[in-house]
Amino acid sequence: MKGLLASLLAPLLALMLLPGAANAQMRALSDTELSTVSGQGLFTVGNSSYNGFDFTRISLDADVTLNANLANMRLGEYNYAPRNGTGADLDIGALQFGRTDGTAAQRLVQITNPYFEFVYKNTGVNNQREMVGMRLGFDGISGDVGMKIATLSGSMRIDAGAGGIIDSMNDAGGGKRWDGTCAGCTPLSSVGGVTAGDANGPSRDFWISILKTPVQFQAGSGMPALTEAQAGIWLNWRDKLTALNLTGTVPVNNATGH
């Protein structure tokens, strides 16, 4: 997969398209039988407005367990010399959901309610709207995620323990095309992965956006205000992230997927 968004979406689509292990013949139900049946749709659609933008969210109303290895992802490349990093909004050499060098529980990452959200803005002409972008995110993510990030455009915060707090928003460029270094902090390249979530629950603010203009997304219930997402590719991930190590070593993941 060349694109990070496509790579993240592919395992989720595969789960929905897998055939069932058993076949059943359809039959009509009486009104009495139907009255005792309840169900829930696989997808939910919701509309909202915030800070001058309209949003349409399509959610996969499900919990997903994921084990996947993604590599060599570059998004938002620029022809001019970068302020920092390699000239891309996101340059990620490795992103691993789950690991095989730990316990059985560490092999899988738990993802709650994946979603797409499309962003619109009124043009001011005949009450027409234009799409300004979209984002892909998860309501919750728990587990070990290995990573090697050369350049990051986004708002990321990692608790590195003795290494202090690694925060892209402390960079002079406000997180845009950050190369992972900052005065007096542990460089992002020293982190080989993160544990998402803790005893209080999952990490709740992972999303990646593609935008033509900066957008302020609304924070979830009980969450602090989000950093305004900038134009281009933007990654947001700050809630309950703890560094796995400060040696830059990505955990082993030999599994092919789940």
Rank of each mutant, 00 (worst) to 15 (best):
G98M: 05
R83G: 13
N84P: 00
V191Y: 04
G163I: 02
D144H: 09
H258W: 11
L5V: 10
N47A: 12
G164V: 09
L18Q: 15
G46N: 14
A105H: 06
F116P: 04
N113Q: 15
N23D: 10
P187L: 03
A225R: 11
A71H: 14
S48K: 12
I166C: 05
T103V: 05
V145Q: 05
G46K: 14
V64H: 08
L152G: 10
T242H: 03
G93S: 15
Q110T: 12
S49K: 13
D159E: 14
D63E: 09
V64Q: 11
G146Y: 05
N23E: 12
S190F: 14
V145C: 07
E228D: 02
A219F: 06
G197K: 01
S7H: 09
E130P: 00
A172H: 09
G20R: 12
V252S: 15
N72Y: 14
S155E: 09
M16E: 15
S38H: 11
T249W: 01
T151A: 04
M223D: 13
V132Q: 03
G257V: 10
G124D: 00
A22Q: 10
G161L: 08
Q96F: 15
P82C: 06
A62C: 05
L246V: 12
G193E: 09
S38M: 10
R57V: 06
L18V: 12
I58P: 00
A162K: 10
F43I: 06
C185P: 00
S38V: 08
A10L: 10
T213R: 01
P114R: 01
N67M: 12
E130I: 12
A28D: 13
G98P: 02
L4A: 08
I58K: 06
A22D: 10
M223N: 11
T181V: 12
E117V: 07
D167S: 12
P114T: 02
F116V: 05
D171C: 09
G173L: 03
D139P: 05
S7E: 14
D198Y: 00
D179P: 07
G193H: 04
T103M: 06
A10G: 03
G184V: 04
A231N: 07
N67F: 06
A10S: 05
P187C: 05
G137I: 01
N122T: 07
G154A: 09
T213M: 02
V119K: 02
I149F: 09
I141N: 02
L17D: 14
S30N: 12
A6F: 13
A88C: 15
S203P: 03
T56L: 07
A21M: 10
S190G: 01
D198C: 02
F206Q: 05
D31Q: 11
D91A: 13
A71L: 12
G174C: 04
W234R: 01
A219K: 13
G192P: 06
T186V: 10
M131N: 15
N79A: 14
L15M: 13
S168H: 08
G3D: 11
Y78W: 11
K176W: 08
L12T: 02
P214Y: 00
S48C: 04
N126G: 03
W178E: 07
G174T: 03
G20H: 12
I166Y: 07
G174W: 01
W234S: 03
P187M: 03
Q230Y: 00
S59G: 09
S35A: 14
F116S: 05
S153G: 13
L108S: 15
S38L: 06
L95Y: 11
G76S: 11
